[in-house]
Design a binder for these strands. Structure first.
Lengths: 230, 230
DNA sequence: AAGGGTCTTTACGCATTCTTTATGCCCTGG
DNA sequence: CCAGGGCATAAAGAATGCGTAAAGACCCTT
C-alpha cells in the first residue's frame, strides 16, 4: 500500500508511451513499458504491475484478446485507452474485464485521477489473497497471523518477517543473502549468524525439529525453505 | 456475487431515476432510489447497496460533500453522473472517492457495462459491515457512535478515528504508519508516540487491559488490531 | 474573557526484543 | 581419523518499544 506502485503501459505508439511515462513517473510511479500485446502479457507476468494501461489499437494482436488472456490468470486492474469512441467497443472491453475506459484524446489530470481511483481500490483485491496452509500451520499474510493447530502463535517482528518471507514462496529455497537483506537490510548480508538464531526461535515456537523438520527445512550452505503446502 | 446486487440511485430528476430504474431492473438488479443527498446517505446506511449511482447536481447539498460523507464509513463503489464535463470536476470527484465518472448524456449500454465492471471488481467492498460488533462493543461507522454494553461511549475525534480505522478491518493488523498517516497526516508517520497515548485513552474508556485485551490487541513493533467479531 | 475539553509535549518505569558472546554438534573432505 | 566449516542452541547485556502519568498549549464555546 505504502509501497511504490508499478504500472505497465502497453502501447505501440512511442510518443504516447513517452507521454505517459513522463506523466506517471513524475507522480512517483514506477513505469514498465511494452510495445506489443505479446510483450505486454510477458511483462505483466514478469513485473507484476499494480495497474495495467492498455491501448486497444495494437499492431500484433487485438487489444480485446490481450485483455482476455490477461484475465485468465490475473486480477490486476486494467485501464483501457482507445481512439475509437464506439459504445459497442467500450462495452466489449469493460465486459472483457477492463476496469475503466478512457477515450483519446484525454486530459492528463483526469487520466491520473482515474489511475489513482483504480489503485485506491486495488489493495482490497490483493488483500483477499488466500492464507497458505502447511498442514497444521497457517500463515495469513493479510492478517499477519500465524496459527498452529488453530492456536495463534505469537511471533516477534523478525520472526514473523522470516516466516512470511518463506511462506510467500512455499517450497522454494530462499537464500540466506535474500533473507538477511529483506529482514536486516543490505548492510547485514554477511551476518548469517543472526539468521540461525531467529530460525531457532521460530522452530521452537512451532515445535519444529531441525533434524526431522515438519515446516522449515535447512538447505545447508544455501538457505531455508518451507515445506510445500498441500 | 451470485446474490442479486442492490443499487442505490441518488438523483433529483424523476425522469432520470425512472430511466435508470427501468434499465437496471431489466438487468435483474434491485434498485433503491433517493432524490436528495441526505436521503441518499440515509438509504446507503439502510439498504447497504452494492453500488451507488450518484448525480453531482443535487438540490440540497453538494455532490462532492455526499461522496466525502459516504466515504467516511463505506467503501461501496460509487459511479458519478454529471452533466458538466469539466476535467477539474472529474478529478475532484475521483479523488474524493468516486470509482467511475460518466458524463451525461451517456449511452445506456456503456453505462450498464461500467456498472458490471464496478460490481465485478469490488464484490466484497460492500460486504463490510457498517456497524460491526465485538461482543459488548459496537462501532457504528455510519452514525459515528460507539456503544459498550448498550451504553454510548464518548470518544474524542482522534480516539474515534483510531477505533473506526481498526473496526473497518476487524481482526486485521493496522500498522502504526497507516494509523499515523490517516489520523495525524503523512507528516507524523514517525510520531508513534502519539498513537500509544490515544490507544491508552481508548482502552481506558472501554475498560480494556493491554495485558489481557478484550478488544484492542497490540502487535509489538507493527501496529494494533481489533479482535475479530463473532 | 473565562472555562472546559482536547491535543501535544515531556518524562519515566517496565517488559520485550534484539544483539552479542560463547559452546557443542554434525557432516564433509583431506 | 582428525580438522574445519557450517549449523543449532543457550544465556548474558544492550537497545528498543510499550504503557502510563502529568503538565502545558491550544481551541472552541459560552
Amino acid at each position: 500500500m505504502s509501497q511504490i506502485a508499478t504500472l505497465l503501459v502497453i502501447d505501440d505508439e512511442p510518443q504516447i508511451r513517452k507521454f505517459l511515462r513522463i506523466s506517471l513517473s513524475s507522480q512517483g510511479y514506477k513505469v514498465v513499458e511494452a510495445a506489443t500485446g505479446a510483450e505486454g502479457l510477458a511483462q505483466a507476468a514478469l513485473a507484476r504491475p499494480d495497474l495495467v494501461v492498455l491501448d486497444l489499437g495494437l499492431p500484433d494482436m487485438d487489444g480485446q484478446q490481450v485483455l482476455r488472456e490477461l484475465r485468465e490468470w490475473s486480477a490486476v486492474p486494467v485501464l483501457v485507452l482507445s481512439v475509437r469512441a464506439s459504445e459497442v467497443q467500450k462495452v466489449e472491453a469493460l465486459d472483457s474485464g477492463a476496469n475503466d475506459y478512457v477515450t483519446k484524446p484525454f486530459g492528463i489530470q483526469e487520466f491520473l485521477a482515474r489511475v489513482r481511483a483504480l489503485l485506491r481500490q486495488a489493495p482490497q483485491a490483493a488483500a483477499t489473497d488466500v492464507a497458505p496452509s502447511f498442514g497444521p500451520l497457517t500463515v495469513d499474510l493479510a492478517f499477519r497471523k500465524v496459527t498452529l493447530d488453530g492456536v495463534e502463535v505469537a511471533l516477534t517482528r523478525k520472526e514473523y518477517a522470516l516466516l512470511a518471507q518463506l511462506a510467500t514462496y512455499p517450497g522454494r529455497v530462499i537464500t540466506q543473502q535474500q533473507l538477511l537483506k529483506d529482514i536486516w537490510g543490505p548492510t547485514h548480508v554477511d551476518d548469517s549468524h543472526y539468521l540461525r538464531i531467529v530460525v531457532a526461535h521460530v522452530r521452537q515456537k512451532l515445535g519444529d525439529d531441525p533434524t526431522a523438520p515438519r515446516f522449515i527445512i535447512t538447505e545447508p550452505g544455501v538457505g531455508y525453505r518451507l515445506v510445500a503446502p498441500e
